[in-house]
């Protein structure tokens, strides 16, 4: 890989973005890549907007994705996906949870989706992961794993599904492992 692969994930505090970041980072290391990530802790986690940066490749210096250089934007919430547009290029691929956590002053779903679809030429996958996970597994919290699995199985991330699954086992606590693996399998279909 000549150039590093740059991922931005976004959502709101408490959606499990840091676990997702750890899984991708571990999987990249398993495949022998250099990795750097950046995350934020503290008050932003109390339901506010959260974004994380994940970069892997032969050699990665900065932990931050530069403006306009994200290869993939993976978002667990629609408004939070739109907020990440300045990291996108016309080629950036979006994988978005069709899930709106509304807030005072926020926009309605249709308008948000339209704005995202109008941007650039990259593919946009808008998937009701929260709904599927709630319905099939009774737990919405694994929608991040679902989307990640979806993305690797569709080759939207240059990592093998096998490595992601291994990383899930390493990062997720024993207690929740089964649930997470189920979410991972569910997205294969």
């Amino acid at each position: 890989m000549a150039k590093s692969f740059n991922i931005i994930t976004s959502g709101t505090g408490g959606q499990g973005l840091i676990t997702l970041l750890q899984i991708i980072a571990e999987a990249a290391l398993l495949e022998g890549f250099d990795v750097k990530t950046s995350e934020l802790h503290g008050l932003s986690q109390r339901g506010g907007s959260v974004e994380t940066h994940i970069r892997f490749g032969n050699k990665v210096y900065s932990p931050l994705v530069s403006l306009g250089s994200a290869d993939l934007i993976l978002s667990l919430e629609i408004s939070e996906a739109l907020k990440m547009l300045f990291y996108a290029s016309p080629k950036t691929v979006f994988v978005i949870n069709k899930n709106l956590i509304s807030y005072p002053g926020g926009f309605e779903e249709k308008k948000l989706i339209q704005k995202i679809k109008n941007f650039g030429k990259g593919s946009k996958y808008i998937i009701p992961a929260s709904e599927i996970c709630q319905k099939e597994l009774g737990k919405e919290v694994v929608s991040g794993i679902y989307l990640l699995s979806y993305a690797v199985h569709k080759n939207l991330i240059p990592l093998k599904p096998k490595s992601i699954l291994k990383a899930v086992s390493k990062v997720v606590p024993e207690k929740y492992l089964d649930l997470n693996k189920k979410a991972f399998e569910l997205a294969k279909k």
Partner: peptide
């Protein structure tokens, strides 16, 4: 789209 402004989501209790 790049210039598109969307209101801030404040942290909540």
């Amino acid at each position: 789209a790049g210039k598109f402004k969307i209101p801030v989501r404040f942290p909540r209790f």
